[in-house]
Amino acid sequence: MIRYTLTRLTSLILSLVAASVVIFAAIEVLPGDPASVMLGVNAQEDTLAALRTELGLDQAPVERYLTWVSGMVHGDFGVSYTYRTPVAQMIVDRLQVSLPLALYALALTVLIAFPVGIWAASRRGSFADVSVMGLTQLGVAIPNFWFAMLMVLVFAINLQWFSAGGFTGWGEGPLLAIKSLTLPAIALALPQASILARVMRSALLDTLSEDFIRTARAKGLTRRQALWRHALRNAMIPVLTIIGMQFSFLLAGGIIIENVFYLPGLGRLIFQAISARDLIVVESVVMLLVFAVVMVNFMVELAYAFVDPRLRVRR
């Protein structure tokens, strides 16, 4: 188990290093001169020179990369060119919206998908199964930001149960904050829950056709008992993989959904930064999101070992 964790940890660190190189190369090296990208074509030569010095562009790319990475390790993400504030502070502010939103959506996804998937698998082929799976087919196909707009139309504009957008902030009490995140979280969660429910169902059905389920039935377990006691845990491996991938979709999808609801999260930050050509901010936010994705994958792999004893010894 310790050996497994160490191996995974090594590959986690390698992935992060590789990802940071890719991000740095794509944003700071590929376009040529970041300073002229940031200031546009009509920039004055002396302003450009000043920015180049500020960004340390007179140094070699390798040195700049190392400075950037060691800064991040110490929590220093640089200073935003447009806002003139430390990027780290901006990220911390925006994370207070984005992270709760992603977790809220993930919780909803799992809470919806598990019961639906299990329920459909245990009634396989029934009218209920066929109709629920038909609904998930719709859920998979719906663009989440369009779904979000429809919800705004129905629940905010017509029924006026929720506000159409904006975020009250955590200072006004957690309930209000949660309420303003509810529509966005549902918009994110329903499509992902549809996918997860389908994965859950098919993983369960696959496991239910395994030999050991027949063995369990020969011991006197009912279908239901065989499903709960033997199939469910075995079906968790593919389900965990998908949950891991979904978290990254929820984070990225959050960027779009924040736009629909005018939420001051990382998504708004990144689009403002793109239109202001604030590369420092873009770079940092992308790195942060990739870091989150890689971390989640790492945790999923630890969860595999928790579920599957074969992994604890092998590798």
Partner: peptide
């Protein structure tokens, strides 16, 4: 009924299968 059958399986009659490699739950 199926419920009554479940009471018999494993108690009145046991069964051994062909493929021992897959007949056991790998996680228990």
């Amino acid at each position: 009924t199926e419920a009554q059958m479940c009471g018999l399986r494993g108690k009145a009659v046991g069964m051994v299968f062909q493929e021992p490699m897959t007949a056991l739950n790998p996680l228990k």
